[in-house]
């Protein structure tokens, strides 16, 4: 596994904590369950906090706590499970989340552009996906038909400007 962040390899400085593990003062990612059962403790902790959301765990559950997280990881248990595309877009668009949004799980190269378009800026990928592959895939389609949360201008806007 490698981490590609904003298009380049990056070191993963985060610890993925399971629900029983004692937390250190390092940057740590917890599950939604842990966040919900230990909210006060986690809020008072003095180190970066990240959150894992699995497919089926809508970000609606943390809508009021967005500012608590420096990292949100959305898991794709299978590439076919596309729920996290909606979660990502909601996080960015509806809840105004601006920090690192990371795709984990079954992430295919052919999906990188879609993931990027809905707001992911970091990807845990297998060794076949290098920054070069990433750069190629993320700009595969040079035009887009829909507004999303990336900076792309959909063609209907471009047409009107012409």
């Amino acid at each position: 596994m490698a981490l590609i962040k904003n298009g380049a390899f990056a070191d993963d400085t985060w610890i993925d904590a399971n629900d029983n593990e004692a937390l250190t003062d390092q940057a740590t990612v917890v599950s939604l369950h842990r966040w919900q059962s230990e909210t006060d403790v986690l809020k008072s902790r003095n180190a970066p906090l990240g959150l894992r959301l699995d497919a089926g765990e809508s970000p609606e559950a943390i809508a009021d706590d967005i500012d608590q997280f420096d990292l949100i990881k959305l898991n794709f248990p299978a590439f076919k499970d596309g729920r996290a595309y909606s979660y990502a877009r909601m996080l960015r668009q509806r809840y105004g989340y601006t920090r690192e949004l990371r795709a984990t799980g079954n992430v295919l190269r052919s999906q990188l552009q879609f993931m990027h378009r809905v707001g992911f800026d970091a990807f845990e990928v297998d060794e076949r996906i290098t920054p070069e592959v990433y750069a190629e895939e993320v700009s595969r389609l040079h035009e887009v038909y829909q507004p999303s949360v990336d900076d792309e201008h959909p063609v209907f806007e471009k047409r009107v400007k012409k």
């Binding site: 596309g82 595309y85 378009r117 389609l141």
Partner: peptide, 10 residues
Amino acid sequence: WSSFHPEFSF
């Protein structure tokens, strides 16, 4: 709108 929709392709 539905072609290559980033949110609704899976």
